[in-house]
Design a protein around this nucleic acid. Structure first.
Ligand SMILES: [Mn+2]
Ligand SMILES: [Mn+2]
Ligand SMILES: [Mn+2]
Ligand SMILES: [Mn+2]
Lengths: 220, 220
DNA sequence: TATATAATTTAGGTAAGCCTAAAATAATTT
DNA sequence: AAATTATTTTAGGCTTACCTAAATTATATA
């Protein structure tokens, strides 16, 4: 079994390489809130286990074996988030932190039983896809809310899950995955979005909108 | 927050001092499957945190502060066992191992929600008492099965939870906490017990019987 | 192209928590 | 009481995963 730290590195490399290929040591260190020297050390260890490919100064990528483990940890994390949300009623702004610790500790048996209890779900409470037990990630199509135009309607697909205060803010507008809304106005000069959610108006700033991804975009 | 190792030491000291006052370094090391030198090291650390009292060569006991933490970990463990058993259907011979890891990782919020889901239970699947959220341990009265006499009837109160194979063996006879049985025969010279469980006869060896505790003992 | 800046790696350290081997202390036997 | 045996502690090592500071390499700028 890998250590918790090693699993977190693999998971992070996976997420970072999804948007941008090779992952630099500095980016990885910043993402994990450690110093670059620490990241270098772990990269060496992971390389010796053939879980990552790495050449000095050239960034790191997962090997196939490393990807399998990364997806396994991500599956644990997202299944746990949904389970804690649905079975124990933990609010969606609290599940990430719990799952971050539990993901390294649950057995494959617990994983399978949660999966069954939840009816083999494909997305966590924040809309992120849950890899299936073979590591296949459900396809998702979404675009950042910031690319929406005046008058367009859409459905919330996914929101970033790690900022608890942001999630509470979105919850106050009922902006959960699956929620439909329409853009009433986009203020000029990179200004905020005024939107209509089931008849209720809300003003969403740029910084918040960057963390919201939408699908089913239509002109109205 | 204490480390997982420190929490396990406190939990173990609590259990060992329940039956025999001061806990020797050797007994503690054997219980935790580490060398005595390692136990000495951790005892020093716990003493520096005022969680245990210790004088060289004289054994160790928990301080009040240490007891609070020990009971908190035991509460986590037993609530988790019951939750995994009832909510996820994990068999009673598998819950101990899972709980051993999860106990150090769940939040007070998860603890409280499991407690509520389970209806504020007082015993885990093996009959061990669950300390309440204030650290109060429910009173239990039981005696070892080995002290039973011919013809006596009783109810299973508690079985030891750490040996998975033993638990499967007991399960094959339906010997769960709450199960009633009657002693048909006690073979002489420290021999096995022949018992009647709801009309089914079973032969229980001495070594197995040592791990079973009973209550409601009555002559018939 | 030479120099300045930024990113990355190397070198050396710390803290947990385990280990083995040797020394110290306590308990038991003669 | 002395000698033997058992228990406990000390001393010194190892691994993981982090750190800071210095050296190296790559990239950007003049
Ligand atoms: Mn994690
Ligand atoms: Mn999530
Ligand atoms: Mn434990
Ligand atoms: Mn138990």
């Amino acid at each position: 079994m890998l250590t918790q730290a090693a699993e977190d590195y693999l998971k992070s490399i996976y997420k970072l390489q999804e948007k941008g290929g090779k992952v630099s040591t500095g980016i990885l260190a910043e993402y994990l809130d450690v110093k670059p020297a620490s990241a270098t050390g772990m990269i060496k260890k992971l390389k010796s286990m053939n879980l990552v490919s790495h050449e000095r100064y050239q960034g790191v990528t997962l090997t196939d074996a490393g990807k399998v483990i990364a997806l396994e940890v991500i599956r644990h994390h997202r299944l746990l988030e949904l389970y804690l949300f649905k079975a124990l009623g933990i609010p969606w702004d609290g599940v990430h932190e719990e799952a971050e610790k539990l993901e390294h500790v649950i057995s494959e048996d617990v994983e399978a039983r949660m999966d069954e209890f939840l009816g083999y779900p494909t997305a966590d409470p924040h809309g992120s896809p849950i890899p299936d037990k073979n590591g296949v990630v459900p396809e998702t199509v979404s675009m950042p809310m910031t690319s929406l135009q005046n008058g367009q309607s859409c459905v919330v697909a996914e929101v970033s899950d790690s900022d608890s205060a942001l999630l509470r803010h979105l919850g106050s507008f009922n902006l959960y995955p699956g929620t439909a809304f329409q853009v009433i106005e986009v203020a000029p000069f990179e200004g905020p979005f005024t939107i209509d959610i089931a008849g209720q108006q809300a003003v969403i700033g740029r910084e918040v909108a960057k963390n919201i991804f939408v699908s089913n975009v239509q002109e109205t």
